[in-house]
Amino acid sequence: MIEALVRLGAGSLGATATTGRAGMFLWRLLAQLPASVRRPGGVVRQLYNLGVLSLIIILVSGLFVGMVLGLQGYNTLVDFGAEGSLGTLVGLSLVRELGPVMSALLFAGRAGSALTAEIGLMKATEQLSALEMMAVDPFPRVLAPRWLAGFIAMPLLAVVFSAVGILGGYLVGVELLGVDAGSYWTNLRTSVDFYDDLLNGVIKSVVFGAVVCWVALFQGYDCVPTAEGVGRATTRTVVMASLGVLGFDFLLTALMYGEVG
């Protein structure tokens, strides 16, 4: 009984301490962001790691999500004789929700886990300590460029995802199922608003990029520096980053579209 209470207390203390460290970590990342902007070489390298290497999975999943939306949407809409509205359905769901959220989840799995593993191994092999030994702060050199690259890569990936998805919906809806091409594009243009839908989706994906990379970097930086610890941290990154993305998605959606009844 006492043991259980002790464990509960230790767990709560640990969770509080971790939250505090994560907050401090975010603060130091923010403080070092200008320094990494001044050294763009590192950011470009990380853009390659985070963005270019995630591109294939984003392109393929975007295409398939769009094609599935086209197929499912058509089957539902055709009962009401409203298959002309397929463009609205595919476009709004991709631009508002699926584009930013799905690409952020894929990004967490593809790039976030790699980030955690990389930073975790740097810690386990004492590279970070070595930097600190030489009085080099790892934040502007190692961590902040990765965070900034995540910021930049995420909205680009989300936009690519939406665009490919809309083309996938076009492929299935128009080419395969015979929806009129004109009504597909016209419906898209009348229903998708540039500011309310497209820009809000981009803002969402910037926030998701920041959240995913923050979680990934923190988990790597804070992991137990052993092989097992790095593995656990990588798993935790995927779980927590995905939960964070979904939580922030609800929050942002409520803020952006909340008052629209």
Partner: peptide, 20 residues
């Protein structure tokens, strides 16, 4: 190429898909 592709996608979405 990656960044250019992102901007092309954004341009496509703004002009062809949204009511910009």
């Amino acid at each position: 190429i990656f960044v250019a592709l992102g901007f092309v996608a954004l341009l496509f979405l703004s002009i062809k898909v949204s009511n910009l």
